[in-house]
Amino acid sequence: MNTTPVLPRDRSPVLLPGLWVLLLAWPWLAPNDYLVSLGGTFFINLLLIASLNLLVGYTGLTSMAHAAFWGIGAYASGMLAVHLDTSPWLGTLAAMLACGLFSVLIGWPTLRLSGHYLAMATLGFNAIISVLLVGLVAWTGGPNGLIGIPPYTLAGWDLSLPENFYLLCWLLTGLVMLSLSFLQSSRTGRALRAIRSSDIAAACMGIPVLRQKLTIFVLANMLAGLAGALYAHQNLFISPDSFSFSTSILLLVMVAVGGFGQYWGAFFGALIFTALPELVRSFHDTELLILGAAMILVVGFMPGGIAGGLASWRARRQAGRKGATL
Rank of each mutant, 00 (worst) to 15 (best):
T86P: 06
L167V: 14
L118F: 12
L180V: 09
A155L: 15
V299A: 15
H284V: 04
R9D: 09
W89H: 12
L19D: 01
A127K: 02
G259F: 03
A319L: 12
R190H: 12
M96Q: 07
T92F: 03
G309F: 09
H116R: 10
A67D: 01
A121L: 02
N2T: 12
G142D: 06
I306W: 07
S244Y: 07
L22K: 03
G259C: 09
T59F: 07
M79V: 14
A220Y: 04
L310W: 08
Q184D: 08
L80N: 11
G305N: 07
V218G: 04
E278W: 02
L22E: 02
G259K: 06
T140N: 10
R193T: 13
G156S: 13
R11F: 05
S239F: 10
E163Y: 06
F165R: 03
K322F: 04
L192Q: 04
L132D: 09
G308H: 06
A74C: 06
A76G: 13
L161I: 13
G39Q: 00
G115R: 05
L19W: 07
G148C: 11
R314C: 09
A229E: 14
L97R: 05
A293S: 13
E287F: 01
T286D: 01
L289Y: 01
S103A: 15
F69H: 04
H233A: 10
P162T: 06
G156D: 13
V255F: 08
C169E: 05
G156C: 13
T286H: 00
G206L: 01
G40M: 01
L52N: 06
M205T: 05
S179D: 12
A191D: 04
A201L: 13
A202D: 00
T86G: 05
A94D: 08
L172N: 10
L180W: 06
L192E: 00
A202H: 00
S248M: 03
L80H: 13
G156K: 11
M205C: 12
N32M: 08
T110E: 00
V209P: 00
A50M: 05
A81N: 10
G265Y: 01
G320M: 03
K213E: 01
L178R: 09
F301L: 15
T110A: 03
L219E: 11
L23E: 03
L251M: 12
I72S: 04
G156W: 12
I44S: 02
C169V: 13
I249T: 11
G141V: 12
I207K: 03
V209E: 04
L15Q: 03
H233W: 08
S312W: 12
A311G: 15
S197K: 07
S87R: 05
L236C: 05
L123I: 09
L136C: 14
W70Y: 15
T110V: 05
L84I: 08
L22C: 12
H116T: 15
N53L: 09
M96W: 06
L35T: 08
L47F: 14
L46S: 01
Y231I: 07
A98H: 02
N144P: 04
P151R: 05
W170S: 07
T92V: 09
W108E: 11
P208Y: 07
G148T: 10
W70I: 01
G124Q: 05
T325R: 15
M222A: 09
A227V: 05
M295V: 15
Y75V: 01
T173G: 04
D10K: 13
W157Y: 15
N32T: 11
Y231V: 09
G292W: 00
M222H: 03
